[in-house]
């Protein structure tokens, strides 16, 4: 049409002719309008604020119900629980018990991680290793770790040994399963890139496979942690770790026997708090430093 322009006389220009437009809008005309969001809007956008609000609301409901029930043996108020918690922290009982639990947990967790690493290493190295891992995980993963406690008590007696044994069982399979799945899902291209660099064997696993499968590995570590924490508290309810200085589970059980229910609640609160700290602080930070920064998600 533009070529025909010269041929078409002015009078013939009907409304079908449209002039070309170039740079119609100069930059000055476009005003960038920025409007600050309202305070409420900004606060509501924050995860932490919304969740804190829910927690405060729950505390109010708890307090109200406790006062209405007025029976410390069945359901102590929020205030009574916090008082018991503060007293427990101040006299050093609660931190001591918590440390007792965490120490055993870390031992079991570390042993479980090492075992899982060895199993997945074998599974990568050979076909039979893979079959072994798959058979073992499908057998033992559905078996609740706590069900092994009676057996562990016979083998290792009353003590840390039994606890570590059930912890290893609860941690290993979850981590091995996820790590193995992660290794299998590493993209073919990345594996070819690794081999292009001339990497092989352990160097290939350390420098290519593990970082590439890290989202899955981290998921495994998180699930393993949650399993281990639950298993430990449950196991401790059955018996104290060693006489006099048991863990949190034993603390809860002891206080229930003495009908000191606010202390039972304080013990439960500690279990919850530790779980929250590990999930939302430790694992969150690891996530932000790794998979969020790399833009990879499982």
């Amino acid at each position: 049409m533009r070529n025909q322009l010269s041929v078409v006389s002015n009078s013939q220009m009907t409304n079908s002719f449209r002039p070309e437009i170039r740079n119609a809008q100069s930059l000055e005309e476009i005003r960038v309008v920025e409007k600050p969001r309202s305070l409420f809007d900004k606060l509501y956008g924050e995860d932490v604020v919304r969740k804190a609000f829910i927690l405060i609301a729950l505390a109010f409901v708890w307090e109200a119900y406790g006062r209405w029930l007025n029976n410390d043996l069945l359901f102590p108020t929020f205030g009574a629980t916090i008082t018991a918690f503060a007293k427990g922290v101040a006299n050093g009982v609660l931190p001591g018990r918590a440390w007792g639990s965490i120490r055993v947990l870390l031992m079991g967790y570390a042993a479980g991680v090492i075992l899982a690493a060895m199993l997945t290493g074998l599974a990568i190295a050979s076909r039979i290793g893979r079959d072994f891992l798959e058979t073992m995980t499908s057998m033992f993963n559905p078996l609740p770790a706590i069900a092994l406690l009676p057996l562990a008590l016979i083998w290792f007696g009353l003590g840390n040994g039994s606890l570590v044994f059930v912890l290893v069982h609860s941690v290993t399979w979850a981590i091995a399963l996820n790590t193995h799945a992660g290794f299998l899902s590493v993209s073919k291209t990345l594996k070819m890139v690794g081999r292009n660099y001339g990497l092989g064997g352990p160097a290939f696993i350390m420098k290519i496979l593990i970082p590439a499968a890290f989202p899955s590995i981290l998921t495994g570590l998180k699930i393993g942690w949650a399993f281990a924490w639950r298993t430990l508290i449950a196991a401790e309810l059955v018996f104290g770790v060693s006489s006099g200085s048991g863990g949190l589970g034993w603390f809860i059980f002891e206080n229930k026997n003495m009908l000191d229910i606010p202390n039972v609640f304080a013990g439960l609160l500690t279990v919850i708090l530790i779980g929250l700290v590990v999930e939302n602080l430790i694992f969150r930070i690891i996530e932000q430093r790794t998979i969020n920064r790399w833009g990879v998600h499982s």
Binding site: M192, V193, G198, T290, G295, V296
Partner: peptide, 17 residues
């Protein structure tokens, strides 16, 4: 081997970490 470097079609050939 590194004497023959590959450039692939896929965008995921860079190490994301």
């Amino acid at each position: 081997g590194p004497d023959r470097m590959m450039v692939f079609q896929e965008f995921d050939q860079l190490l994301p970490w």
